[in-house]
Amino acid sequence: MTATRILIADDEPSLVAVLQPVLSAAGYEVAAVADGKGAVAFILSHDLDVVLLDLGLPDIDGKEVIRRVREHVATPIIVISARHLEAEKIAALDEGADDYVNKPFEIGELMARIRAATRRRGTTTAPMAFYRAGPLAIDFPARRVLYDGETIKLSPKEWELLQVLARSAGQVVTHKRLLAAGWGVETTETQYLRVYIGLLRQKIEEDPSDPRLLLTEPGVGYRLSAAE
């Protein structure tokens, strides 16, 4: 098996100088580009496993980079962005980014995002059959959800939502995508979504008021913990 290949698209040399050796030490094969056009060219000409994309590149907007490469390839893209720029993050996710990391980040958080992205890439060819995290287990072909080994009953909507979250386990799923999955329309009010997330938490969380599996990403969406 070949090493996982990562491209860092960031114009901040000090950040690249830290990430490159750390990611290499973690066993990844790392390349770096410092502008948007270079990033597009590199992504289209290489078979990459993950792209770490800074949204504030000097030449073209990060969202534009995503738009240009998404027409051709499905390479997982993790956006690196400042915490207060929700609208930017959501727009990038809508353009086809897979996840985001807030700047500044701790390396553990970044590694978890990279793992989630590569795991998901692995399942695009063969659909994920099983998910397990803590007491929760999902058997996709059988459409069965188990909590502590016991089958739990989910309504069709709850199942749709959980399935979308689990297939992107470890990654953020935007309100918009969840609404589209559960209701088929993107315009439905997020309050419906909140209610169903609440119902799901009742069934899959040990303490629904202090969730450990189904986490809120304020203003953006929800994230189901990565499979163990």
């Binding site: 609208a87 009010e189 997020t190 008021s209 202090d210 986490l215 809120t216 304020p218 203003g219």
Partner: peptide
């Protein structure tokens, strides 16, 4: 400008974490 409907309890839980 970026106003959206936010569930206060959900937000507090996220902040506490």
């Amino acid at each position: 400008t970026n106003l959206q409907k936010i569930d206060v309890i959900e937000m507090l839980v996220a902040v506490m974490q």
